[in-house]
Design a protein around this nucleic acid. Structure first.
Lengths: 334, 334
DNA sequence: TATTTACATGTAAACGTTTACATATTAATA
DNA sequence: TATTAATATGTAAACGTTTACATGTAAATA
């Protein structure tokens, strides 16, 4: 039951100084004597004073909050990024505000709201698909924006990405080295930037290794578990069976497992499977899934650091595309 | 390149009215003529005016942001809660700020910072373990607080929880009905509120069904995958083998799978397994895991609604404990 | 001692809203 | 028509900080 409001005015009164001096003492400004400062600090502590961050943000025009906009928050990949972003921003004196744009909230709407509200100093946007509307919205920013996206086509903002193309080629290279010649591919959604590059990497490496790509072994998927299962079912209906299935993400690879088990195929003896992402469940599938590990921690870290450097003006270079390394994790599925 | 700052003052000047009238017109206040309002709205739209939410929050003493404090953000269980909380708060005109207290940030520190900063109107705190320090911190709140926790011991705040005790009894009941008599139990961490109640439920139902609890079949776990695997290894070293293992959470159940497979046991033919939580991987284990489904969506929704009702004063009852239902999901693991 | 310099502190404006209160205008009533 | 009530609008304070500028004081220099 604190009767009086504790603010710098109250502290000033008790310390017999002006509010300016209190402000300076509390902010560690050097233009204040040791004695005055310690007196003020003591009183502030006694009164359990906490600065009104809202007032401070208001006058400074800076909230030290960064916004993180997600297409859909429940995906495990995203939750790891949230953690990394939140960790990094905290270390740099920022808070993280998470805005998911599922349900009745569109991505563009979320971005616009956040950009104009002055509540966040900058924005990290996680993009799975990038259409022209989104690109236009992002480019018309009034605050710094960093995108985490597979689509690296030029926009007027920084992009943190992974090397989908090279990683995909690495997978094919590895399969080839293992002796696989007949590789099937389950693609991701058409408009998905990551999916497009992964597919291109697959095709190019096959071409380079002179592996003929059987058209019936290229099937469309949607990055979901059931989509992967259906795609695998479709693959199994062909007369000629592939030796290994390369799914464009782990979730679909897990779907393949379901299909293969139900159809009586053993992994990897009958058909091998390889995925992309290294999500949590991949390690615990039977057999554990060979896949491309995406370093989400670094991804989130880079994005956050880049954004903060943009915010505080220590990075004034042209917008960049930063690529985070991936790693082939060899397990037992092929 | 907007040369002039767009605020209500600027709009007032152009509309030839006072800032008060602009404020009223924009906020939909009725004390303003249709003509004046539409004139102001038109100008605001032309100038692409966006209210400074920070200024508004500051003067109103309300930010419409709720804080969500997590022990560690990467857990899948938490990410589902984030989604649900964010969704519900958005529907009620609130933003969600996520604060994870991993790394160098303690839970108590996070709570204190958030409570005093005035940045959030209320706080949802996800608790796995509740010690006295946390309880004391939560009880000394200056803003509404809702805890999502297994520990329902009375504190001066609302608690949303699941019925760990009853659910655990349900599992034992089901196993008994299936004919299992020799049930092993892998416990969670000592101080974990959920774990304590699950264990109690297990014991009480065994007693009721007159199932003798073999002490060597009760082993300690830590809710992690490797912990589950070790616990199962330990169980398998006894001369007498249990017929089924009840793991206090799904992660440990998955660990059991690893141990059993490595030791040449078939699930469920040789030994059955049952878990608790119904996390994403449970469905995709081989065989799919029978477990207790926790309705995270409802959990997050209830917590958020409760909090918002506290914030806007529409709920002034004594602090409550609200229990969200669980469901036994029968799959193939026992 | 007189003057300059450095430093500590105070004064007051600024940030962009909302809102209590005052005032002016219009409509409703006697 | 005179009075009252209702409505529209304006004025100015308030929210809690930070900070440019002014002022005062003590130390350093001439």
């Amino acid at each position: 039951m604190q009767s009086k409001k504790i603010n710098i005015k109250e502290i000033a009164k008790r310390a017999n100084v002006s509010i300016a001096t209190v402000s300076r003492a509390l902010s560690g400004n050097n233009n204040v004597t040791k004695e005055t400062q310690s007196k003020i600090l003591k009183i502030a502590h006694e009164l359990n004073y906490r600065p009104n961050l809202l007032a401070r943000s208001f006058v400074k025009g800076k909230t030290n909050i960064i916004g993180l906009i997600l297409p859909d928050i429940s995906d495990e990949f995203f939750s790891e990024i949230i953690k990394s972003v939140d960790d990094t921003s905290y270390q740099n004196g920022y808070f993280t505000m998470v805005i998911s744009s599922h349900g009745n909230r569109s991505l563009v709407e979320s971005i616009n709201t956040m950009m104009s509200s002055r509540i966040v100093d900058g924005l990290i946007v996680l993009l799975s698909t990038v259409n022209d509307e989104i690109k236009k919205t992002l480019s018309s920013h009034s605050i710094p924006i960093v995108a985490i996206s597979g689509d690296t086509s030029i926009g007027n903002y920084d992009i943190i990405t992974i090397d989908n193309y090279k990683s995909s080629r690495d997978v094919v290279k590895y399969l080839y080295k293992k002796g696989y010649k007949k590789i099937a591919y389950i693609n991701g959604p058409d408009e998905n930037g990551d999916a497009i590059l992964r597919y291109k990497g697959f095709c190019d490496e096959c071409k380079k290794l002179k592996l003929t790509i059987n058209p019936v072994w290229i099937v469309k998927g949607d990055f979901t578990l059931s989509g992967g299962e259906e795609a695998a079912n479709q693959l199994l209906q062909n007369k000629e069976r592939p030796e290994v299935i390369f799914a464009a993400n782990d979730m679909m690879a897990a779907g393949c497992y379901n299909s293969l088990v139900k159809n009586g195929y053993k992994i990897p003896e009958d058909i091998g499977v390889v995925g992309f992402d290294d999500i949590l469940i991949s390690e615990y599938l039977t057999p554990p899934l060979t896949t491309i590990k995406v370093d989400t921690e670094t991804l989130g870290k880079y994005a956050t650091e880049k954004l903060i450097n943009r915010i505080n003006g220590s990075d004034v270079t042209k917008h960049q595309v930063v690529t985070v390394n991936t790693e082939l994790v060899i397990r037992k599925s092929c």
